[in-house]
Nucleic acid binder design. Structure first.
Lengths: 214, 214
DNA sequence: ATCAATATCCCTGAAAACAGGGGTCTTTGT
DNA sequence: ACAAAGACCCCTGTTTTCAGGGATATTGAT
């Protein structure tokens, strides 16, 4: 009996690569491929009883990315394993995935052999993370300890986002229906919390955290 | 007689994808694959007389990226065609490639058929760019006209870099052995030139231009 | 030789940011 | 039930930014 796999990736050529690797193995049956997580989420909803063993997914995809997909799968269908194959090694993404019980993570520049090993390991019930990914995860956890878990409230995120979008204090106050003084307080707290010196530091933080895109 | 191709990409799995696509065609002989442009540049140097028809390359790679590789190939071996296959659609990268006579550009999310068409077109002596890439290129040229080529002097780059690194005006003045007033003038000019509103805008520009990494 | 671009410096006044305090009220967890 | 955390507001005084005008000296290209 073959394992049923689903592959999600918005890069056609990469998909072809994965397919050619997996088709040369006999144990895997590719149920479905898709360009984004939304298709898969829908599919799982419509076919609740189908036996699906593993979903292999990229991270950056239009509409619904791999982070969101993994979250949904683990919340609704925790018996389905998930393996992320991505070229991104953003520590926060990795952290998010691991917190949401992803079963494995292999970078896209990994050897074919490692990918197959990851799949086998995961289907065997264990987790598989590439050395590189483990290192990034640990490094991140370690340095987070030093920074003493800087966590912003939603309101603070609102304010820092607007600051990074080049709005003045008064404009932000108007937008949020708050007093100018309140915004000044938030800015002051943000600068202290994030250990930066001024607007430039706040802006960089906002970019790093993807509060703004530009 | 087969065409001799070289493929450069640091993502093993993607390489496998390309190989499986191209091996199923009979016209192509894959001479060599590599993980970065440096290997290829070396290879071309050592084997100056080998008949090479086309180099297919990614853009982001360690050591020597696709931009640099294309430049070198076109400068030293202009008879070798180059095709970029990348998921990046940064207008400046595309612009750079086209200025340096790249023969084609196909995004990684293109269909297999489009890739093959691109290769055939290029080997036939014409250029091939995906609709998407052409659009980005034209859009960029068009909007550049509007923005009237914002070009910063080296000194301005120095100043904006330090600003984005969170230094105060006085600190920047000290570092550059200039008066505080001079830095203020530079900042004023930068804000005008770049059509931004404040430090946040300057910081974002500096990041976009890679003046700072963080 | 000359002209444009660049680099440098200065001033004023208004607006904004910043440091460092103060506070109330509501929500949330235990 | 009560403490902690968050959201919200205010004040004073200093520093910095920003818009708007200047100016001069050097350099590079035509």
């Amino acid at each position: 009996m073959k394992y049923n796999l689903i592959i999600v990736d918005d890069h056609k050529m990469f998909l072809d690569g994965l397919l050619s690797i997996l088709n040369s193995e006999n144990d895997y049956n590719i149920l479905l491929t898709a360009k984004n997580g939304k298709h898969i989420a829908k599919y799982l909803e419509i076919n609740p009883d189908e036996k699906i063993d593993l979903i292999i997914t990229d991270i950056t995809m239009p509409e619904m990315d791999g982070i969101a997909l993994n979250k949904i799968v683990k919340e609704r269908k925790s018996n389905i394993k998930t393996l992320v194959v991505s070229m991104h090694n953003n520590p926060d993404m990795i952290d998010n995935l691991i917190e949401h019980d992803v079963d494995g993570y292999v970078p896209k520049n990994a050897e074919k052999e490692e990918l197959l090993k990851a799949i086998q390991t995961i289907l065997g019930g264990e987790k598989y993370f590439s050395r590189e990914i483990k290192d990034i995860y640990m490094e991140n956890k370690f340095s987070k300890k030093k920074n003493e878990e800087v966590k912003l409230t939603q309101r603070e995120i609102d304010v820092i986002t607007l600051i990074a979008q080049e709005f003045t204090t008064q404009e932000i106050a108007d937008k949020l229906f708050l007093s100018k003084h309140t915004i000044e307080s938030y800015r002051k707290n943000l600068i202290a919390k994030l250990s930066v010196r001024n607007l430039a530091g706040l802006t960089k933080y906002a970019m790093k955290m993807n509060y703004i895109q530009e």
